[in-house]
């Protein structure tokens, strides 16, 4: 909460939603989600170091409906943040700033993140079926 109640300029409530702002907001949101996702990475490494029982507990959590839901969300967040992060790095060196390029690349990373997430889970399901 701000310390003083200063007037604010109109914010996202009055703007038409467009890909330029959505990709930016999602980059931040997925970044925050991934920061929390590092807890699972840390837990998995600690469990792997601790022993078979701890590792089995982590694996059981990942197999539960909550664990699967979190993994689904985090895997998409990782794919999105990865592809849009690459887009940001290219923008940092001055590429892709023409409006049509900016919009096209926005759609490219958005759809690409879904495709990449699908590929990752296709690998998971194929392994589960084969094992």
């Amino acid at each position: 909460m701000p310390a003083t109640a200063r007037p604010l300029s109109p914010h996202i409530s009055i703007y038409r939603w467009q890909i330029q702002m959505v990709t930016s907001i999602l980059h931040r949101a997925t970044g925050i989600a991934l920061a929390f996702g590092t807890i699972l990475l840390c837990a998995a490494l600690l469990a792997l170091a601790a022993g078979p029982d701890a590792f089995a507990a982590v694996r059981a959590f990942c197999g539960s409906w909550l664990g699967t839901l979190l993994l689904l969300g985090w895997s998409w967040a990782l794919c999105y943040h990865l592809l849009n992060g690459l887009r940001h790095l290219l923008q940092d060196v001055g590429m892709g700033f023409r409006i049509e390029q900016f919009v096209r690349n926005g759609w490219l990373v958005s759809i690409g993140s879904l495709v990449l997430t699908g590929l990752v889970w296709a690998c998971v399901i194929a392994q589960r079926g084969g094992a």
């Binding site: 078979p52 992060g85 690459l86 790095l89 990752v120 998971v124 392994q127 589960r128 084969g130 094992a131």
Partner: peptide
């Protein structure tokens, strides 16, 4: 970015291995 491919491969490999 450089480590991402290796990381995804490692996680996917660990999933179908025992402890």
């Amino acid at each position: 970015l450089l480590l991402a491919g290796w990381f995804l491969w490692t996680v996917l490999s660990v999933l179908h291995l025992d402890y």
